[in-house]
Nucleic acid binder design. Sequence first.
DNA 1: CAGAATCCAATAAGATACTG
DNA 2: CAGTATCTTATTGGATTCTG
Lengths: 136, 136
Amino acid sequence: MASVHTVTEATSAPSWDPYERGCPSRDLLDRIGDKWSILVLGELGRHGTSRFTQLRKQLAGVSEKMLTQTLRALERDGLVVRTVYPEVPVRVEYSLTPLGVTLRGPLKALTDWSLEHTTDVLAAREEYDARAVRTG
Amino acid sequence: MASVHTVTEATSAPSWDPYERGCPSRDLLDRIGDKWSILVLGELGRHGTSRFTQLRKQLAGVSEKMLTQTLRALERDGLVVRTVYPEVPVRVEYSLTPLGVTLRGPLKALTDWSLEHTTDVLAAREEYDARAVRTG
DNA sequence: CAGAATCCAATAAGATACTG
DNA sequence: CAGTATCTTATTGGATTCTG
């Protein structure tokens, strides 16, 4: 999966044309397709708002680094908003932007599908692997 | 971790439990989230059936290796079926399985979203980057 | 045609330590 | 708390060469 963007070279203009060939802009699909984005978006969609540490626990397994990167990327894409409360110690809350909310539907369709068809896929894998063993 | 796994060892049983914590099974999301799966699925969804070389052209940019890997993974997951016609030279056709067809809806929702909101995301990125520059 | 095999460069991911 | 910095390992992706 591609680039959780190495930021540093703020390429203002993308070199691809989102309209060419009706192509669904790999760039955007990559973002939601990366390792944690869907999960983060899902959590914020369900929870409404979460703090950094809270998210870390909910996503069980994500490292601080990855969570930060994912959150930053989502923020940059206008899907998530980061609010800092200058208390002591500082409190930071994340939630979906209106644009992020429009992604909830499509995302839910996807996670619903995965929940619904997990057993099918697992079965298919077992059969495939079994056949592979027999075939050599 | 023994570095002995050269991929080739058909990992029969996954070590995670898809039912724990109502988690939307990262394993499945990972599959469709990888670099080419969505595009391949999309092509097969639109086209109905495609041959290897045909797919390579339609996906413009995929290497043989990646296309093969993606196709194999999708086949293993029961989403794509591979049919070999023992002609000379051999002809191989790929198409969606019934299970794969059930993914069309969710996937279309996603690609439609990306088409619809590309400009929004692009605008958000520019603003974010502009602010980053000002902020330092 | 439709891959398989191999090698190598680029990225991503994770662990750990440190900070305002 | 909410990160940042740094280092190391693991995984990806692509180019190339070869084959039934």
